[in-house]
Amino acid sequence: MLLASARRDAAAFAELVSRYYKPVYRMVWRMMNGNAETEDVAQEAFVKLWQNPAQIREAKALKGWLMRVASNLAIDRLRSAPHTDINAIEEVADPNQRTDADLDVRAATGRIDHAIARLPERQKLALTLVYFEGMSNISAASVMEISVDAIESLLTRGRRTLRESLAEDWRGLLDELSSKVG
C-alpha cells in the first residue's frame, strides 16, 4: 500500500488515509485544544506524505511518521498563533437534545479537557500518544524522538500536573461521572 502510494496511486493513498486519519486527527485535536484548524493541520500532514513518500522506508514506521509530522505541525501552528481557547471544544456540536444529566457530564468532561489543555505541550503530547492513542512508551518515544526514560518522565510529570489541577474538584467529578454515566 505504501509502495502503491509512492507510485502516486490515489486509491492506495485513500486506503492509507482511511486507516490513519482518525488517530492523526484526534492527536492534532488534542494538541490544538480542539481548535478549528485541526482539520487543516491533519490534512497538511497527509499532503506531506503524498508529496514525499520516500521519507518512509518501512510500512510499520508510517503511523509514527505521520504522528510526528502532524504533532510538529500542530505545535508550530500553535506557536505562530497561540490560541489555546479550550472553549472551542464546545464547538464540537452535539446535535441531540441534552438532558440535565448530559450537561453535567459534559461540564465534567470539559473540566478534564481543560486541565489537559493547560499541560505543557510535550507533556500533553506524551499523554495523548500513550493514554488516548494507546501507543506503547517505545512507540511514543519514537514519535517524539526522545528516549523511553524521557517519555516516562514526561508522563509522570503530566499526571502530576493533572492531579494538581484537578485536585480541588476531582472527587466531585468522579461522583458526577460515575453516577450519570454509570
Partner: peptide
C-alpha cells in the same frame, strides 16, 4: 486520574474530512 482521563472528550471526525 485514570478514570477521569477515560472521560476526556473523544473528538468526532468532521463529516467529509477524509
Amino acid at each position: 486520574l485514570d478514570k477521569l482521563l477515560k472521560h476526556a472528550t473523544d473528538p468526532a471526525i468532521p463529516e467529509g474530512a477524509e
